[in-house]
Structures are given as C-alpha cells and as structure tokens.
Design a protein around this nucleic acid. Structure first.
Length: 584
DNA sequence: AGGGCGAGCCAC
DNA sequence: AAACGTGGCTCGCCCT
C-alpha cells in the first residue's frame, strides 16, 4: 500500500502530463495558485515551481524540467478563479516569462487589507499572518527563503504544496467576509486591477539619461551658488586655520545647525520649516529656502533616479502598492514615480522610446465632481452639468460679482477654498493661505457654504458619522475604519474629522482610478500600447506613434466609462494629449 | 555599520 | 501651536 505523505501532492516533471492536469483543474471552480522563484524580480529571476491546488489534489509543476506550459494556459487565463496571495507578484512572473495573463484572480492579501478598512497598524499581511487570523492555521514560511534553483528537498515540496492548498479554505472564508462586509464590488475592482498594475510595473518608464544629467549639472551649479550665498550670511567659525576653512564649516542640510547659525544672527527659529522661514525678514531665510529646493531636487531626484534604471530593460520599474493607503489610492516606491517634480524641466526627461509616443490622460476636476455627486448640492451639480467653470462660479457668488467680472485673484481664492474645504480646512489656515485675516477667512467660508449648503451638510455629517459609527464608505463601498474618538485629544479629534471629510472624496477618486486601470488595460490588451504610469487622476501610456490617435480614443473612453460607473448625476471629463515627453 | 525616527519636501 | 487630506524619499541624528 502506498504511504500517504503529510501534504499530498503530485509532482509534474513531464510536459506530457499537463493536458491531464489541465482537465482536472478545468472541472474546479476555484484553484489555489502559487509559484516559487529564484528571486524577487521577475526580470532577473526564474520561476521554479508552479503549484495549483483543487480541494482534492495539489499539482506541483517543475518548470525546470517542463518548459512549455501551453496546456495550462487556458486554465490560467480563463476558467476557474485563481486564488493567490499577493497576486501581482505571481502575475508579473507568469506574464514576463510565459506571456500569461492570470484571470480571474482572487487575492487573499488584498481581501484581508480591504477588510481591515485601512487600519494596518501592527498588522502583517503575509500569508502566514492572514491564514493565522482567518483560519487559525499556521503556515510555516521558513522554506520560502531557501534556494529554489537546484534539487528540491521533500520539505521544500511539502511547503510549496501547502502554500497553494491553504489558499482554498482561506479564500472561502475571506469571500464570505467580503460579502458580509459588503465589499464585493471593491474586491472585484482590486482583483481586476492586479494585472494592470503588474503589467505597468513590467513596462517601466524610459528616462532620457543624457537630458537628466544635463539638468543635474545645471541644478548642481544653481545649488552651489545658493549654498555660497547662504553661507555668506553666517559668520566664519572661530579658531579655524585658513586651510581648514575649505571644507564645509556648516551643514546646511541640518535643521539643528541651521537653527544655531540663525541664533548667531540674533534670530530664534522655532523650527526651520517653510512656513516659519517665510516670516523671517533676514535675507538668509530666503536664501535657505532657495538652497533647500535645489538640494531636494538634486538629492531625491537627479542624483538618485538613474540608479533605478534596470540593466536589462534600460527603464525604471517602480513598484505600486495597491492597498496600503487607507483611502484606496495607490502608493508607489523604488522610486516613487508619483512624486516627480511637476515642472516640465523634470517631467520632460521621461520620454517615449524611439518611434513611440506618450498618451497622457487625466480626469478633469474629478474630486470636485465627486463632491458634487455625493453631496447632491443642486448648484454644484448644475454647474458641472452645464459645463461651467466651477471656480469662477464660486468666486462670482462668493464675492457677489457677475461671472464675467470675476478677477484672476478672486478665481484663485475660490479655487483654494474649493480644494481646501475638501481637505477639511478651517478658517485659520485658509485665511493664512489667502493672505487675509481670520475674520475675513471665516466670512468667505460662510459665504461659500451659503451658496453650497448641501456641501456643508455633507462634510459635517460625514465627520459626525466617522466619530459615531467609526466607519465610512466610498461610492464603490470601500470601507475606512476610524479610531474611537473618545480616546482622542482635541487636536486628534480635529484631525479625525478632517480625514473623515476627505475620505469619501479621495476614496471615490481612487475607486474610479482603479476601475480606469482595469478598463484601460483591457482596451489596450491587443495593441502595442502599454500603461506606464498612474498618478492618482492621471495615466501615462506609451505606444507606437502610428496608433496614438486610436489609443488616445480608447483611453479616453475607458476612463470616461470608469468614471460614469460611479458618477451618475455629474458628467465625467477626461483630457488627453499626445507627446514624445511627459509634460503637464 | 545599520536601524529607527523626525524634519522637511515632492506629488496629487 | 501653525492644523490641509493621502503618501514616499532623503537627510541628519541618535541609537545599538
């Protein structure tokens, strides 16, 4: 009689067995899936194992001996739901090495993150941790970091099989939790966006290094000049021999040393932030701000970004973090290509490859449209429906002047208020920004809310609900949980109310953006166009010049369609432009 | 030497 | 106090 192993699995080392495996998997509704790789980067590492689990059987395909996994393609690209933990990782490897687009996907990591409602504090989302929380089952990950490139031990194979199999009960549990918490739609959005994000990371972005270096040299020159000017305001340190004076006597990047240096000028600084320095009369304050700006650009961007260029592809492949941000927005790292300085000087260094062009598309005032939709404020909604300039309209009513007589300054003030109030901004900070006194700031806000009473009502009710019910939802149903307010101090309570007021707006914008990722990726699937960046309400696509017009149209349609899924009473507007270089 | 943290600043 | 929401990155500084 055959001995039963602890975790049953069938090891496939022969390609001829694959059709049979495919037949078994085809009959399953849900398949647990996992891979083991020789490293973390799909572009420089290999896939060693592909594990596929049904309730009855777990297959381990040894991809070192099985080269052609063609018979499994149908199962992976369609058919049963593939359950994975951190599916973007597996998707990227399978897409890069086999051109396979996993679909449909259920991601147990994303599911767990959605269920947390943005409260990630002290929570791990490793498979081990999530299985522990939802199944009371430990998954030993000690084998994960072992060497998967050579001969595999029984322990390794056991581990590989277990990893795929545990996903089945875990998915069952998380699926019902998502249903219970009314997170099915958000789940579908997140799971659908996995592929788009994986492909976007793999596509990467081209940096024109020569142009970047030129800019680096220019900015360094400007920085050195600014440093010299700044240093000239401070007295020479005492007891220094002439030769020793050559090195830097004062570290201009150190807030502490800067504070001390200002003290020598008779200026006491509470801190060295912009806001503080702007109020200082001494020219050294201005010089410091100038120096800081250039130093930031040099250190964070110009000197750093070339290091991120991948040797193989010659492009920068950032990582997008799908569910880290409580509002649902994407975060981005290594490097953060969402925070490249907005000036053309910087952005235009990100270019299309020879023969290609960029299609740059962004939503026009999406957050204000969401505010209109959610608040149902009649004037707000009407303005968007009639294609009016909302900032101008706001200024016109706020200052009681006809639309056509609104000045630039008045419109700019209205714009600041429109944006500021979405962030829960109060009279104090608004008046500071507008350069006016608090009394007038308060009056402007009062006038604003008199014109848009339902906006005020919405913001107020939202903050109250966050405090009382401790949970809020976006238009798509994405949940954010809030701390109990009674444990908070005055200041923290205020912060919570502001977070709350902003959440439904920023969150719905994220919902729309993620839907857009899905639709854009789908629309471009059979073209040579690739999504290469996503900056909250803006998408950058690279494609052969020839097909730019049709790509522009497809992207615009996909984005509009995504917006209209959630905005029913307010029109969605998308602006698209084509350029060899990234620009505003 | 390297981790952790705060200050400061870039994006939307 | 500097109160405008969401992030990530670099630097200085302090720690082990």
């Amino acid at each position: 009689m055959e001995q039963k192993s602890r975790t049953d699995y069938t090891l496939i080392t022969d390609a001829e067995k694959l059709p049979k495996v495919a037949a078994v998997l085809e009959a399953a509704e849900v398949v647990g899936a996992d891979i083991e790789t020789t490293g973390l980067s799909p572009r420089s590492s290999e896939v060693r194992l592909l594990q596929l689990a049904t309730p009855n059987e777990t297959f381990i395909v040894d991809l070192l001996s099985v080269e052609d996994i063609g018979p499994l393609r149908g199962i992976l690209e369609d058919g049963p739901v593939k359950v994975l933990h951190n599916a973007k990782f597996d998707y990227a490897f399978l897409f890069w090495h086999y051109g396979i687009r996993l679909s449909p996907v259920f991601d147990t990591m994303l599911a767990a993150q959605l269920l947390s409602g943005g409260d990630h504090e002290g929570r791990s989302y490793s498979l081990d941790a999530v299985a522990g929380r939802y199944l009371d089952e430990a998954v030993d990950k000690t084998e994960q970091v072992t060497d998967w490139s050579g001969r595999l031990s029984e322990r390794q194979l056991q581990y590989a099989a277990k990893d795929a199999r545990v996903l089945l009960p875990l998915q069952e549990r998380l699926k019902s939790e998502l249903e219970l918490e009314k997170l099915k739609l958000v789940g579908r959005i997140e799971f659908g966006a996995v592929g788009a994000l994986a492909e976007m990371e793999l596509a990467g972005i081209k940096l024109d290094v020569a142009k970047w270096k030129e800019l680096e040299i220019a900015v360094r020159e400007r920085r050195d000049l600014a440093a010299g000017k700044l240093e000239s305001y401070f007295p020479e340190p005492e007891g220094m021999l002439p030769l020793e004076g050559i090195g830097p006597s004062l570290n201009l990047n150190s807030p502490k040393q800067i504070t001390d240096a200002f003290k020598l000028l008779g200026i006491e600084l509470a801190d060295t932030k912009v806001w503080t320095l702007l109020k200082v009369e001494h020219p050294a304050a201005k010089a410091l701000l100038h120096y800081r700006e250039l130093q930031k650009k040099l250190g964070t961007y110009l000197e750093t970004y070339p290091k991120y260029i991948d040797e193989k592809t010659g492009r920068i492949h950032a990582s997008f973090l799908q569910c880290r941000v409580p509002t649902g927005r994407l975060a981005c790292t290594n490097p953060n290509v969402q925070q490249i300085p907005n000036e053309d000087e910087f952005r235009s260094c990100f270019v299309a490859e020879e023969g290609n062009t960029l299609v740059i598309a962004d939503y026009s005032q999406i957050e204000l449209r969401i505010l209109a939709e959610v608040s149902e404020d009649p004037e707000f909604v009407r303005a968007f429906n009639e294609g009016e300039d909302l900032h101008r309209l706001t200024a016109s009513t706020m200052y009681s002047v006809p639309m056509e007589s609104v000045t630039k300054e008045q419109r700019s003030d209205a714009k600041r208020i429109n944006f500021g109030l979405m962030y829960g901004r109060g009279a104090k900070s608004l008046s500071a920004q507008l350069g006016t006194d608090e009394v007038r700031g308060r009056k402007l806000i009062a006038e604003y809310f008199a014109n848009y009473p339902k906006v005020q009502q919405l913001l107020h009710e939202t903050a109250d609900r966050a405090t009382k019910e401790r949970t809020l939802r976006t238009l798509a149903g994405r949940v954010r949980k809030f701390k109990p307010a009674d444990e908070l101090g005055r200041q923290e309570k205020g912060a919570l109310r502001r977070e709350a007021m902003n959440y439904p707006i920023q969150g719905a914008s994220a919902d729309i953006a993620k839907l857009a990722l899905i639709y854009i990726n789908k629309a471009l699937r059979d073209t040579e166009a690739r999504l290469i960046n996503s900056i909250h309400d803006e998408f950058v696509i690279e494609c052969p010049e020839k097909i730019a017009p049709e790509v522009s149209e497809k992207v615009k349609q996909a984005m509009t369609f995504a917006g209209e899924k959630l905005l029913k009473n307010v029109p969605v507007e998308v602006e698209v432009m084509t350029s060899k270089e990234w620009r505003k």
